[in-house]
Each structure stands twice: as structure tokens, then as C-alpha cells.
Design a protein around this nucleic acid. Structure first.
Lengths: 133, 133
DNA sequence: GCCTTGGATCGACAGACGTCAACATAGAGG
DNA sequence: CCTCTATGTTGACGTCTGTCGATCCAAGGC
């Protein structure tokens, strides 16, 4: 447990000031797109979004699986499966303490996604073109 | 064309100052999660991420489909299909001008996603709990 | 040791998704 | 009209995904 099998998502791309490197400014390379898509795909499910929300908004920063499972009309293996996908995406991490397993948010990844989706202040937004090349 | 069939994603949830309502702060209701998941699912594909990146980073704000298709090793119907999904997710909009169709980014949606993924400044991050209820 | 409880893993299944070839549609220009 | 080019749509096919029941593993208590 407590494994961190997620990819670091090319942390070198952006400047040290925390500004976003791509998606809205640069054409985004093929392998970068593949890595990013894994994370967004992990967020592309209502159950996983609610799981992440429950974990992130928890006072204390950690949630026991035994508190997550009864919040859904789904079987325990299904919840475990979704948690695994969120973990493999680098969005959460797990740690076993005694009988229970606790999950916590990894804010680095959500911060990173937020930066990727943020455009650099005032986008020019000029007039439309007339015809392609 | 130029249709805007996307959902507005519950624009009422957040304060007027642009602060984010959920995902990292509140447990996120079931229907909100369903709507949000559609958008993230649209981003959960490498081809669509690259398409969105190409459109958003284009100087001029608009891209002709004829400029997008040759950038991929995919058939034209496949590109058209991905563009449709991005459009239905509210991430881009299309407009026909003469023979060509131009796509442009809808920054409201990416701004919204960035806000949703942004935590409200200093998250407390207290010590872990000891045992569940 | 044995049993109980909390979670993860496995195997199977229906439905969703990405892809293509074929066809349909919309303008532009004869 | 007719044709050509640029896009969207349809139908089909293989793969991926979400879900479950059954099973397995880890830790604690007896």
C-alpha cells in the first residue's frame, strides 16, 4: 500500500513560477497528451468525481474506505476499483493503518491540472481569419 | 452549426467572485458529478486533448478543420467525431464560413474547470485521524 | 490455531467508446 | 443542374470500461 505508481506527468514543462505550459498555449505533444488523458479519464466518471470530492473535502485530510463505501449504491469491489483508478492517476494515495485503509488527496496533481487549464491572463482573442492556407 | 448544445453545468453554485464551489471543498452532489464527468470524459482522450490544444493555442483563436485533420494519423470522420464530443462538452464552438468550418475555444468552460480544481488557498491539512466511527 | 472484519483481486458480462469505410450534406464554381 | 471539395452522419466492428459475485489477503481478537 501507500504505493505511488502514478506518472509524474512531465513536471519539467512549465516555468518555475508555476505558470502553465500547455493545452491552451502550446500544441501539446503526443506523449504528453497521452499522459494527461489518463488523469482526465480518471476524472471522467461521476462515481470517481464524488469519491475524490469526498476525500478532498474531508476535514482531517483522510478518509477511511469504510466511510466511502456506504455513500454509494455500489458494491464494495466497485468502489475499490474506482479508488484504484484514482490512485493510479496520481490523484489520491492510500495508507493502511491497522485494519483500515485511509485515502488522502494528492494536491500536486489537482494543482497541476488547474494550471494546465488556466490561460495566461489576457488572451488576445483577435478577429477571425478569412480562409485557411 | 454554431450550436451550443452543452449544459451550463450549474453556474449558480459558486460565488460571484469566481471562487470554486466544489470538488475539493464540498462533497459534490450526484447530478453535479454527472455533468462534470461528461466534460472531463471529453478531455480523457489524447486525440481530443491535442485537438483542444491546437484550437486553443492557435493565433487568431480559430482553426479550420482542414488544418486539424492532417495533424493526426486518423480518418476525417474520426476527427469530426472527436470535435463533436468536444463541442457537446461545451469546450469548443464551431462556425461555418463558406466551404470551411472553423472551431474556437470556449474559455468559460476551461476557466470553470480550472476553478473547480483549485483549492481555496491554504488548505489546513491537519494530522490524520485515528479510527473511523 | 480459528473466526471475524475490512479491502483488494479475479473472472465474467453488458454497455460504452474509438475507429473506419460508406454515404449524406453544404457551398462554390462552372 | 452538375461536379468538386470540405465536413458531418451512419452503421459496423473490436476494444475498453463499469459493474457484480466469488474469492483471497491482512490485521485483530478469541
Amino acid at each position: 500500500m501507500s504505493n505511488q505508481e502514478f506518472v509524474v506527468l512531465g513536471q519539467d514543462g512549465d516555468g518555475p513560477d508555476g505558470c502553465c505550459p500547455g493545452l491552451l498555449t502550446a500544441p501539446l505533444a503526443e506523449d504528453q497528451a497521452t499522459e494527461l488523458a489518463k488523469v482526465f479519464k480518471a476524472l471522467g466518471d461521476p462515481v470517481r468525481l464524488r469519491l475524490l470530492s469526498l476525500i478532498a473535502s474531508r476535514a482531517g485530510g483522510e478518509v477511511c474506505v469504510c466511510d466511502l463505501t456506504p455513500a454509494f449504491d455500489l458494491s464494495q469491489p466497485t468502489i475499490s476499483h474506482h479508488l484504484k483508478l484514482l490512485r493510479e492517476a496520481g490523484l489520491i494515495a492510500s495508507e493502511r493503518r491497522g485494519t483500515w485503509v485511509f485515502y488522502r488527496l494528492l494536491p500536486e496533481m489537482t494543482d497541476r491540472l488547474a494550471g494546465i487549464l488556466t490561460r495566461p491572463a489576457g488572451q488576445p482573442l483577435p478577429e477571425p481569419a478569412e480562409a485557411p492556407a
